[in-house]
Design a protein around this nucleic acid. Structure first.
Length: 424
RNA sequence: GGAGAGGUGGCCGAGUGGCUUAAGGCGCACGCUUGGAAAGCGUGUUUAUAAGGAAUUAUAACAAGGGUUCGAAUCCCUUUCUCUCCGCCA
């Protein structure tokens, strides 16, 4: 969420930014926040004064009791009684205002970077780069869900039987290819300076709030009620939360982590042809990169992450493009997002396989992730993350684009991980 | 899961109702000392919020939340985590 100080001082540019997102009622909400912030501060001052007075008198009472002047002490006791009531009332008001304020703040999305194009939907996203040749498939080429069946490498029905739709079972060379992709992605990331971590796959409430999944989006996550834990929708959540309530030194930057985890998403409301096969799953594997950066370096870092993922796709030799998301398609917490899409030839459509974002201080504010700056003051850090990469759609595009009449040809960089060069 | 013991600052550790934001030590920073270093000596060393131009001041925080009291690190309740023993277990 945005900080109050930022809202107080940048009302006009915030309203402009929210307009890029087509955010409704921005004016009303921001004005309300500013008004509530003002009264919050007034009440806080009043409360502090009442408490200070009360503390002072309590000390005097202590002295009177010591010296045996009980009567004098009792007179003062009455006085503190009043003050106590007063401060109790003030405190209740303060808590109420703070709650209301937070509720309002939770509604306000991040302010888009000036590069973000105006737009309503994914049609308005800007394609900024495209590379790789779209292969000409042989006669009778088929989509990945049919290939999966033909070569018996993914069993959707079996997953359906033991869990439900969206939980496929990978088999044989399919399972091995998954493992190969994970290892390959992790190796690429660690080579680029990311530290590999293995986080828990379940998170508590505080972590969900830290990265913004809670309180609004609990419907997207699987919830283990008995222990009040949530299955992670992405490694971003546990890994970014490593740094919740942390005060860093400037010399700690940059912090670069990478993690492979399964991801669990309820995807409530998704259906239709576009969710067929591997296109949208409830459980899928993903290798994530997460960075914590000095505010002055975060956009450099974002560019670095984009170039890094580019490098991977070039090695895989798959046709991809990079989009700069428009205001309407930009995630709630993001200031600037680049999406990577692979072209799935047999489906004749682009599949999103990575989303790389700079959240600036939006997550850090909730996380209370700060660092001591040169002036010795604590300042919010910037957080970034991106996929490198999400497996199912990479697999889908790979199967479809690399299919030949004799089988599926494994990209060369993966062969040392798979131990085979053909699925047939 | 059962029984017991605990949770105090960056770390160790004292502290069972007021003079404790917190002794003492370690660490760290700066200064003095020194040919240089170590030792020694001195000073400083949490965070958040509010007020102020600033120095600063006030409030809050001793696992978390609530309660008793004029006053709570200290007493009571709830939750949580850690350790020890027992049970179960990959």
């Amino acid at each position: 969420m945005l900080t109050l100080a930022f809202i107080r001082e940048n009302k006009e540019s915030i309203l402009k930014g929210l307009a890029v997102r087509n955010f409704k009622n921005a004016n009303v909400i921001i004005d309300n926040i500013i008004k509530k912030d003002l009264s919050k501060r007034q009440i806080k001052t009043e409360l502090d004064q009442a408490l200070a007075e009360s503390n002072k008198i309590s000390k005097e009472i202590g002295v009177f009791f010591k010296t045996g002047e009980v009567q004098k002490a009792n007179i003062l006791k009455e006085k503190t009684g009043q003050l106590k009531q007063q401060s109790k009332a003030l405190n209740e008001t303060l808590i109420k205002i703070e709650d209301e304020l937070n509720e309002l703040l939770y509604q306000v999305p991040n302010i888009p970077n000036p590069l973000v194009p105006v737009g309503n939907s994914e049609e308005d996203n800007e394609t900024i780069f495209q590379e790789g040749e779209i292969p000409k498939l042989h006669e009778g080429a088929i989509p990945h869900w049919e290939l999966a069946k033909k070569y018996d490498i993914i069993d959707f029905e079996l997953g359906n039987k033991i869990t439900g739709a969206g939980f496929p079972v990978y088999k044989g060379k399919g399972a091995k290819l998954q493992r190969a992709l994970i290892s390959y992605f992790l190796d690429k990331n660690t080579e680029a300076g990311y530290t590999e971590v293995q986080p828990p796959l379940l998170i508590n409430e505080a972590s969900g709030i830290g990265t913004g999944q809670l309180p609004d989006k609990e419907g997207q996550m699987y919830h283990v009620g008995i222990d009040n834990l949530y299955l992670i929708p992405t490694a971003e959540v546990p890994v970014t939360n490593f740094y919740r309530d942390v005060l860093l030194k400037e010399s700690d930057f940059p912090i670069c982590n990478t993690a492979y985890t399964p991801c669990f998403r309820r995807e409530a409301g998704s259906y239709g042809a576009h969710v067929r096969g591997l296109n949208r799953l409830h459980q899928f594997d993903k290798v994530e990169i997460v960075r914590i950066e000095h505010p002055e370096k975060s956009y450099e870092a974002l560019e670095g992450m984009v170039n890094h993922v580019k490098g991977i796709l070039q090695e895989l030799d798959l046709p991809y493009r990079i989009l700069r998301l428009c205001g309407g398609d930009l995630g709630f917490t993001s200031a600037l997002t680049y999406d990577f899409e692979l072209f799935s030839t047999a489906q004749d459509r682009w599949l999103e396989i990575s989303s790389i974002s700079n959240f600036e201080t939006f997550q850090a504010n909730r996380l209370k992730l700060r660092f001591k700056n040169k002036e010795g003051k604590s300042q919010l850090a910037h957080t970034l993350n991106g996929s490198s990469l999400a497996l199912p759609r990479v697999l889908a595009a790979l199967l479809e684009n690399c299919q030949t009449e004799n089988g599926i040809k494994i990209p060369e960089v993966l062969q040392k991980y798979t131990g085979f060069d053909m699925i047939d």
